[in-house]
Computed example of a mutant assay.
Amino acid sequence: MSGVVSVRDGLNELSRLAPKGYALALRIQYQSALKLEVTYGREWAEHYGRNSYALCDPVISWGLGCEGVVRWSELVDYPDPHDVIGQARRFGLLYGMAVSCGCQESRTIGGFARADREFTDGEMERVAEVVRALHELTRPPRSLTEAQRTALRLVAGGCRYSQAAAELRISESAFKARLKAARERLLARTTTEAIARAREHNLL
């Protein structure tokens, strides 16, 4: 049993297990992750993004084709034309591991780093256990409450919050609470994102 009861708890534990940071793409579908969490240092994250290394990262290549856990040092058979792993070392990510789980249509992939030593087998097993728990916790919802659906529909239809609250005969703060609950259920940062995800999962 993982003991992970919330997404935030799981991400906090991964921060403890990977002291030099991590990048975790939860439930990749259509080349986009449901949730992307990156805690690597800002300089490396910006360098990685600026050079579009996701397109040639051996960790991602491995994760798309395999399930399980692997140390970065074991990825010698995977092409690394831009020396992504070598460059990561120059930014202090000296040792790393990767985890991949889930079906091809909804894959979760993560890379995790240390500066002092290789991850032990026990640490790798725990990281993988937490990642699998997060993969399950972020399974798309099969439903929203009627109140949540109505709130999202009104905003999607162009209503301002005060307008929508008046139409439902509730306070504006109660209306905002419904939107917040819908965002949390859909793992969306904004209401616009929540509306898009609800439509994607045929919940509106």
Rank of each mutant, 00 (worst) to 15 (best):
R42G: 11
R42S: 11
R42I: 06
W44Q: 07
W44F: 14
E46N: 12
H47Y: 13
H47E: 06
Y48C: 06
Y48N: 09
Y48E: 06
Y48P: 08
G49H: 10
N51G: 00
S52A: 13
Y53M: 11
L55R: 09
C56L: 14
C56G: 15
D57N: 07
S61V: 03
W62V: 00
G63N: 14
L64N: 10
L64Y: 13
C66A: 11
E67K: 03
G68T: 02
G68E: 04
G68Y: 08
G68S: 07
V70W: 04
W72R: 05
S73N: 11
S73I: 03
S73F: 03
E74N: 07
E74V: 01
L75E: 11
L75C: 10
L75S: 07
D77E: 15
Y78F: 15
D80F: 13
H82Y: 15
H82N: 07
H82C: 09
D83P: 03
V84M: 01
V84F: 06
I85Q: 11
I85L: 15
Q87L: 13
Q87E: 15
A88N: 05
R90M: 14
R90E: 13
G92H: 15
G92A: 09
L93D: 04
G96Y: 09
G96V: 08
G96N: 12
M97Y: 12
M97S: 12
M97P: 00
M97F: 01
A98H: 02
V99I: 02
V99P: 01
S100N: 12
C101Y: 03
Q104S: 15
E105I: 02
S106A: 15
R107Q: 06
T108D: 04
T108K: 10
T108G: 04
I109Q: 02
G111N: 08
F112V: 09
F112R: 02
A113Q: 04
R114P: 02
A115V: 00
R117E: 09
E118V: 02
E118P: 02
E118Y: 08
F119Q: 03
F119M: 05
D121K: 08
D121T: 02
D121R: 13
G122V: 01
G122C: 00
G122K: 09
G122A: 10
M124C: 07
E125T: 05
E125D: 13
R126L: 07
V127P: 01
V127Q: 03
A128M: 05
E129Y: 01
V130P: 03
V130W: 07
V130G: 05
A133R: 08
A133I: 06
L134K: 13
L134G: 13
H135G: 08
H135K: 10
L137C: 05
L137T: 09
R139C: 09
P140D: 09
P140N: 11
P140W: 08
P140R: 08
